[in-house]
Amino acid sequence: MTSDRWADLRPRLISAAVLIVIGAVHIWIGGRLFLGLLSLLIGLMIWELARMTGRGGPAWLPVVFGLAAGLMLAVDEGIDNSPAWILFPPVALAVALTPRILPAATGLLALAYLAAGHGIFVIRDEAGPALFLWVLGVVIMSDVAGYFAGRTLGGPKFWPAISPKKTWSGTIAGWAGAFLVGLGFWLAGHGSWLLPVLSPFVAFAGQMGDIAESWIKRRAGVKDSSNLIPGHGGVMDRFDALAGAVLFVVALQPLVPLVMLLGAP
């Protein structure tokens, strides 16, 4: 039983290491290289979403949706003054209007992933790598702390009807880990005192992004969104929490602009 509990740990660690190296290089360099990777990831997420919720229709249709989503994001962020963002809602609407389970929820999730892709690029492009690495670090630490605490401590389930593996112990451990990430960035001089204060809320938003995907998967009757990432499942399985966290940070901007998070005067 103990070995089964940790059976997926080795492939998870190997895949995570590869993703971290690839991501770190692209985040550090930024620009079109980062945009290319981001467009690919968002396109794959839309493809997975359309594929697992589809009911009938040609097999190539999810591929078209994924290509359209990635292309719209690349054009919108890569060409100055491009109005490609106005096509985000039509792409999501096209997904919702094709035969599938939960069409409205699927369309909203597709739009959320496109908006998150835009938000990720804006945070990295306008605030630099440090602030985006804070968001990413919060999501990763929340996931890692939640994984080990949940598997070790167990206890009451967080939302058993939707995500039967998630526990309150793992959820709270994720919040604590997120706070430590924010505190570390602040103490290292990479942001304001708001970072540790907001970090648990960012982690919670990420957890809700994960819950939203889990709900869709349960209704679709699938365990993973795909098998593209060994030990993790699909791209949605790995980046759904990041999407939720980024959307939360973007939604905060009217109240807490990026310049405040960076600690600039």
Rank of each mutant, 00 (worst) to 15 (best):
T2R: 11
T2M: 12
R5I: 09
A7V: 07
R10M: 13
L13A: 14
S15N: 03
A16I: 00
A17E: 12
A17T: 13
V18F: 08
I22F: 12
A24L: 13
V25R: 02
V25Q: 05
W28S: 15
R32W: 13
L35A: 06
L37R: 00
L40C: 11
I42L: 07
G43Q: 00
G43F: 00
A50R: 03
R55T: 12
R55Q: 15
P58V: 01
A59K: 11
V63Y: 00
F65W: 13
F65H: 15
G66R: 07
A68Y: 04
A69L: 08
L73K: 01
A74T: 06
D76H: 14
I79R: 10
D80K: 10
N81P: 04
S82P: 04
P83T: 02
W85G: 14
L87E: 05
P90C: 09
L97M: 14
P99I: 05
L102W: 09
L102F: 06
P103K: 03
A104C: 07
L111V: 08
L114N: 12
A115R: 08
A116F: 02
H118L: 13
I120Q: 09
I123F: 04
G128C: 08
L131D: 08
F132N: 14
L133M: 14
V135C: 13
G137F: 03
I140E: 08
F148G: 03
F148V: 02
G150A: 11
T152F: 11
L153I: 14
L153M: 10
G155L: 07
P156D: 04
K157Q: 14
F158T: 09
W159H: 08
P160R: 12
I162R: 05
S163H: 05
S163F: 07
K165A: 15
K165N: 15
T167P: 04
T167L: 09
S169C: 07
I172L: 15
A173F: 07
W175R: 03
W175P: 10
A176R: 03
F185C: 10
F185D: 11
W186F: 14
A188D: 13
W193G: 15
L195H: 06
V197Q: 06
S199F: 01
F201Y: 06
V202L: 13
A203F: 01
F204E: 15
A205F: 01
G206H: 05
G209M: 10
D210L: 03
I211L: 15
A212H: 01
E213W: 00
K217M: 09
S225P: 07
S225M: 09
S225L: 09
L228T: 08
I229N: 10
P230T: 01
V235E: 04
V235L: 10
D237T: 00
D237I: 04
R238L: 09
F239R: 04
A245I: 03
A245M: 07
V246Y: 07
V246G: 11
V249A: 09
V250F: 01
A251T: 01
L252P: 11
Q253S: 12
V256S: 03
L261Y: 02
L262E: 15
